[in-house]
Amino acid sequence: MGIFSGLLGNLSEVSVEELTNQYGAYLMPNETISTGFKLIRDSFIITDERIILIDHQGVTGKKTRVTTIDLDSIYEVTMETGGTGFDDSELTIHYIKSPYYKANTITTASYKFEFKKKFNIQGLYVALQTSATQNLKRMNG
């Protein structure tokens, strides 16, 4: 069932120890992993500073693209729980890509994560939305 879920695009939670062993080299000094998820070869990790997206490319997966979304740049989070049938749970984060948040023109983007229907995404949603709300207050204050 795990491989089948992976083929459908569902993320599975991975232990902090396994993520640290496999991706610890990508962490900044004093940065710690809070949680992380894996989809066959690709992963995403949430630390106390950022979300790290790890995309293993090519046939062998040796080529790796690492992308960071700073937690401080997230301004909105949306959640959709799984329904009946093959519906997945989805979590979408909206974030500012511009390096200067108070510039006249900012660039934004969004990223959608899909989870197994049975995975309870409410805790992750609340944690990220709490960060987003604090960010909005800080940016607009």
Results as ranks from 00 to 15, higher is better:
G83D: 11
D70H: 07
R50Q: 06
G36Q: 13
H56C: 10
K38M: 07
T35A: 06
Y23N: 14
E76G: 06
L27S: 13
G83A: 09
S73P: 04
S73I: 04
G36I: 15
E49H: 15
P29W: 06
G61P: 00
M79C: 06
D55I: 00
I46E: 13
I45F: 09
F44M: 04
Y23Q: 12
I46T: 07
F37D: 09
K63A: 13
R41I: 02
F37K: 05
S89L: 01
L19M: 08
E31M: 10
T35G: 04
K62H: 04
I54H: 03
G83T: 04
K63T: 05
D70P: 00
I46R: 09
R41C: 01
I54S: 00
F86I: 14
I74D: 05
T20C: 02
H56E: 14
G82S: 15
S34Y: 06
D72S: 10
G83M: 03
M28L: 15
M79P: 06
V77N: 00
T92D: 01
L53S: 00
L53T: 00
D87G: 15
L27A: 11
E76S: 08
D55K: 07
R50I: 02
V77G: 01
L39P: 00
T64N: 03
L27T: 12
I69E: 08
S43W: 08
A25C: 13
D48H: 07
D42A: 03
I54G: 03
D88Q: 11
D72N: 13
Q57D: 01
M79H: 08
T64V: 10
I45C: 04
K63Q: 12
E49Q: 15
T60K: 12
G58V: 07
G36S: 15
I54Q: 04
G36F: 13
K63F: 06
T47R: 11
R65T: 11
T64K: 02
T84K: 10
G36P: 15
P29Y: 09
D72Y: 02
Y26N: 14
S34L: 10
K62N: 10
L91P: 06
F44W: 09
E80D: 13
L27F: 12
L53Q: 01
L39Q: 09
L71M: 13
E76N: 10
